[in-house]
Design a protein around this nucleic acid. Structure first.
Lengths: 347, 347
DNA sequence: TTGTAAGCGTTATCAT
DNA sequence: ATGATAACGCTTACAA
């Protein structure tokens, strides 16, 4: 195949038929064609039949822009996430897109990256595109300092915003998340009570979720009358398994790792092997997200299941209901569950 | 037909300002405002200044639908992929979205699933939304029987279509992929020449890519004067690691596994451990995609790197150039590379 | 049940 | 350099 020049011209004129063409061919007015198009019941069966036939025969497709202009919506929502390549976020994006499409909404994806400035820029970009609503996927969207979240509240003045994984209160703002704090607390206590001397909390983000998980870990320690160990913070969103291992190797004294993410947990398992520690005998490892990664690991990871599917369902419900004008709970918190596998041995 | 439109509610008035409001406030005509908006050079500095100030002061944002109607484009492309939750596809989607956005294009995501019928339905849905172009991510879009791909060729009549990972020829149709066949061939020969008796080819899809990889495997066997073993086909897109292990356990006689996907390869490694086989001594394993999963595995996976990043770059280049009216190669094939890690030992 | 005509908010083509 | 005004293709009162 050689170089190919696009014969494709989608400028004006060359384009297909419009509603006037159809109305002429069908011998009716454009209003009638429009009614047929919109399933109005004020059309006689005969006319509808005829119009539909003409539409079919000519492969007519109504112009979505014109419709959007008239209706002030193109039934589109903005799906923002820091990194759609992250397995966890990707899963959410996939699930949400399907659910929203099933209800007739297209999803405009926007992978913002982790910089607040970019997130803000993209939120307003999508708003300019006149999306009907916004979904912010991942707790990274909630900044530590309240002021950093103002742009989200401002966005909510223009279109409903639903947060998945984070929590933020405000008008036209809806949060759906999992109670990871309680789950972390329980897991910590569980580890300590099963005889672990020191549980190391391993995380890589000070996002809403990260802070929440850390709080849970501390509570779990307190529950058992133990002092919490200094948490290990990896300050990289896209960390390497190698980095995790190195960071752990620089620490000592722990016989359990509670990780805020399954990938971090995998790093812990690999660290153990390299250090000659047996998992779970010498080192117990608990991950979080209960992602597919947990099964790729050997031994398989015990992981906190934050029920992403259920969360996505709630997010979609929330957005669709709000868009339909129905009232909806501004805050939904689902319980998490600990899924036990080979990386722990709660005796 | 799917021409139905539900009962929209027309909201007007409550919206913000329009170009007439701005023109009045600035004491100019709407044409001038439009010129300012579009960076026309036929506006005096003074006037531009004034208009911009009014726009700024009132937070005016031009209506994207109206603009779309007039220009017949909203600078949007359709990004279709079977499963955006699949780590490999997710990575591609993420990369593509960012590249396209950088050039001013929004991405309408559509997770089609693996059914041809659905893919077809969604392709025409996006076309109805008047996207400027279409990207089909993943070789799954290319069916075995040519007739099954007609819908893609028809789509290309309305907007340029770029395939990532598959190959299909036709007007206004562009393919970007990696030479996985050659890579598989080389890897097979490499395994055999390093002393492996039987290399088992493990795959889970008869897509363009799957067939291509299998052909490469067979060529590799032939290169070494060996008969190809019966390939092992898992007929599930979202398979479980457990399934892979079970399937392998039912076979015998192989001392190497060449997998069409890293996840399949992980299954092979786990199978080996369960069967008491050492990796790579007793069983060599080669994966494909060189995804993050390869590093999560223990030992880490030797994997065929199909250079997803480079592919995405080419896809974006292709689409952007075609949309800009520039000629572009209808077929791009990049070489793949074998990344050696602990799951093989080519002595 | 059907038709007429007034928006919807831009861009672009003319004049001036 | 600026201003009228005609598309762009649809939905929807309002009339008939």
């Amino acid at each position: 195949m050689g170089l190919q020049v696009s014969a494709y011209t989608r400028k004006k004129g060359a384009e297909g038929l419009n509603i006037y063409d159809i109305s002429r061919l069908a011998g009716v007015s454009i209003a009638t064609v429009s009614r047929v198009l919109n399933d109005s019941d004020r059309v006689s069966p005969r006319t509808r039949e005829k119009v539909l036939r003409v539409i079919e025969e000519n492969g007519y497709e109504p112009n979505a822009f014109a419709r959007g202009l008239g209706l002030n919506t193109m039934h589109t929502v903005g799906l923002l996430c820091a990194d759609a390549g992250d397995p966890y976020l990707a899963q959410a994006v996939n699930d949400l897109e399907r659910r929203l499409r099933k209800s007739g909404y297209d999803s405009l994806l926007c992978c913002t990256g982790y910089e607040r400035e970019d997130k803000e820029k993209y939120v307003s970009l999508l708003l300019q595109k006149r999306v009907d609503g916004l979904v912010l996927v991942g707790s990274h969207f909630v900044e530590r300092e309240e002021a950093g979240n103002d742009y989200i509240r401002r966005a909510a003045e223009k279109a409903p915003v639903v947060l998945l994984g984070g929590e933020l209160t405000g008008e036209n703002l809806y949060s759906v998340r999992c109670d990871e704090r309680a789950a972390m607390r329980a897991a910590t206590a569980r580890l300590l009570r099963s005889g672990r001397r020191e549980v190391l909390f391993l995380y890589n983000s000070l996002s809403f979720s990260g802070r929440n998980k850390l709080a849970g870990y501390r509570e779990g320690c307190a529950d058992c009358g133990r002092a919490a160990a200094e948490p290990l913070l990896l300050d990289a969103y896209r960390f390497d398994v190698e980095e995790v291992q190195a960071a752990l190797a620089a620490r000592a004294g722990f016989d359990a790792v509670l990780a805020a993410d399954d990938r971090l947990a995998v790093g812990a398992v690999k660290y153990a092997k390299r250090a000659g520690l047996r998992v779970p005998q010498d080192l117990a490892v608990v991950g979080c997200n209960n992602s597919a990664i947990a099964l790729y690991c050997d031994p398989e990871l015990t992981s906190i299941d934050n029920r992403l599917g259920a969360l996505c369902e709630q997010v979609a419900e929330a957005l669709l209901n709000v868009l339909a004008g129905n009232p909806w709970e501004s805050r939904t918190v689902l319980p998490a569950a600990l899924v036990e596998r080979g990386s722990t041995d709660f005796s």
